[in-house]
Every structure is written in structure tokens, then in C-alpha cells.
Nucleic acid binder design. Structure first.
Lengths: 168, 168
DNA sequence: TTATCTGCAAAGGCTTTGCACGACT
DNA sequence: AGTCGTGCAAAGCCTTTGCAGATAA
């Protein structure tokens, strides 16, 4: 596989939605509309940095000084369950280690959290030409495939699957 | 880009090294050779599941009942600094959220931990044919490019870079 | 011998849970 | 009115730090 030549874009600023649009989004998904929740979501989608809970807390607290960190966590959980946000590092609750130091990729089961190595020379050669223009120096890359392993599929077919809190 | 047709392999069992080979590996890198360390590393590289610290602790404790969890963490840190292991989810110390729910990929700065969105239709279409044979049902995927952002490169050129504890 | 490793204990940081009050539908 | 959200507090979990004794080079 050669370098990817298709158009790709780096997003430096995300969507800006009005509070009204956010309220509509919430109601569509059956979420109550509150000022804190609206502010947290707005801050999240406008942030270019994939903020932490504490980051959002600090930002939104400027507008709502009574805000508690707990509410931020709770709200993020609600947004996640509603499919309005993803956790970038959703396995944050524990570190996992990989003794394979050769380039490789991962198959990640969303059911049982199993991570399996995938070796594929084509994936090893992925590049994105547009990145070079941005000044970002790429030193490596890795592809993650998400899904369900055989055992989890047997135990829990797609039809009856519940969205796990850590799913993407 | 079409489905990748090159040979790819799923690793179900990892390397098996003798204690002597492990000892040599350690000495080559200036690490002391101890029974616990050898056992932890051997368990790590033989594990197909990308174990957690606790997982390794439980396993190795069967052979060395006096083993402490602290030693496992310390050893993993040493192995990581020596380049003998990577942390799969090296941002485990905090959750980060992404308000962009469209398919996209990430540029991750190992210097400042910045995560930037990368939209690229070609990357969106990646598939690995060999996965289908294994019974793993892929529901999504994502590419992570690691490296250094412009600011970190200016502040800390490649030549003087120290390996951060969270680097891959 | 000397640097470093191990194990115990305690601390630290982030996240979740429980509960009462308040707000949204 | 009823359900759900918010804020405070406390607990929980994982990981790191500090230190004394033990071990490898």
C-alpha cells in the first residue's frame, strides 16, 4: 500500500452549536436540558484538545461557579450512553502491557476487553501525506479494530447487545 | 483504498523465551536479573491478553507467593523504560473525551499529550480480510499516529528528547 | 562493596457511589 | 407530581512514593 493521497483534514476547531441546538439534541435523546449539562457539552464539542473531566470542570466552573466535578463525571457518563461523546482512552481505569515490541496492531473486544495482536505489513506502511504539512512529526502509528470476539458473539449476539459503558 | 489483501496474522500465543535468554536480554540492557523480574517478563511476553499489573501479579504470585504488587508495577516501569514493553493504554491515568462522533482518527503528541482529530476518508475504509476468518466481528476501527507536535518539536528537538514514561 | 531490587506501608490521584435537595418535563 | 439532575461528602480503585532490608553485579 502506498501513501494515502486522498484528502484528509486536521481539525483544529470543532463544531459550534447554539444552546438551542444543544437543547434540541438533548431532548431528541430523552435527556433533560439543564444549564450545566448544556455548558459541559458545548465546552466539550468546541474543545480541540479532547478534554479531561477536570479540564471541563475548570472551564465550565468559570460560568457556573457552583458546578461540582461530580456533575461533570455524571454528565459525561450520560453523554456517553447517549452516544454524544466517546472516551478517547476508554480503558483508562487500568493499565495494560504488551510484551510484543514489534510493530503491530490490535483487535479489541468491546465485550470482554480482550486485546489481541494483529500483524499486518500493509497496515504498518500507512501514512497520511497531509500530516507532513502541519509540522507534526509522526514517529509511529497503530490501528485499532473494535468489535466482538467469537466468544462474546456467542454469549451475546448483536441483537441483544447492550452498549457497555466503555464501548466506542 | 480497497481491503488489504496482504498477509496478516493474528497472534494467539507470544514468544516463549528461556530464563537464560531473558537474563541475557536484561543484562544487555543493564537490568539486574532477579527471579521475580524474570518471571514477570516471561509471563508478560507469553500472555496473549495484554495483561494488567494485577493480572501479572496474580499469575506470578503462584510461583513466588511473597511477590508484592508494588514490585510488579516497579518492574513494568523498568521494562517500559528499557523498551521491553509498551503500555497499550498509556493514558490510563485520566479519561479524555471526544465530542466528535463522526469517524475520525487521531494525532497524538507524546510530548504534551495533545490529541488532535484527523479526518481521512481513506483511513476510514481500512479493512483486514484475515480478521473475518477468525470470527472476530469488527464494528469499527481507528488509526492513531504518534509523534510530536510543532510546539514540542521546537521546545524539545529530537536529538535531546527523553523518553517519557508514557511514550510508546 | 555498591547500586539496585524487593516488599510493606502509606499516600496520592482520579473516578464512582450515596444521599438530600432542587430542577426539568 | 414524578423523574431525573446537581452538589456535597465519602468511599473505592489503581498507581506511585518512601523506606528498610535483601540481592545481584
Amino acid at each position: 500500500m502506498k501513501a494515502i493521497r486522498k484528502v484528509s483534514t486536521l481539525k483544529t476547531r470543532t463544531a459550534r452549536l447554539s444552546p438551542e441546538e444543544i437543547g434540541r439534541t438533548f431532548r431528541e435523546r430523552g435527556l433533560k436540558v439543564t444549564p450545566q449539562r448544556t455548558a459541559i457539552y458545548q465546552t466539550l464539542i468546541e474543545s480541540p484538545v479532547h478534554p479531561t473531566a477536570d479540564h471541563l470542570y475548570t472551564q465550565v466552573k468559570r460560568v457556573y461557579p457552583m458546578l461540582s466535578l461530580n456533575t461533570v463525571y455524571h454528565t459525561l457518563g450520560v453523554l456517553r450512553n447517549a452516544g454524544l461523546t466517546h472516551e478517547v482512552n476508554y480503558w483508562h481505569d487500568r493499565s495494560q502491557f504488551d510484551g510484543n515490541i514489534n510493530p503491530h496492531h490490535h483487535l479489541i473486544c468491546l465485550g470482554c476487553r480482550m486485546i489481541q495482536d494483529l500483524t499486518d505489513a500493509s497496515l504498518d506502511r500507512l501514512t497520511v501525506s497531509s500530516v507532513r504539512r502541519t509540522g507534526f512529526e509522526v514517529t509511529g502509528h497503530q490501528v485499532e479494530f473494535y468489535g466482538y470476539c467469537t466468544r462474546c458473539r456467542r454469549r451475546n449476539p448483536a441483537a441483544k447487545r447492550k452498549r457497555k459503558e466503555w464501548s466506542v
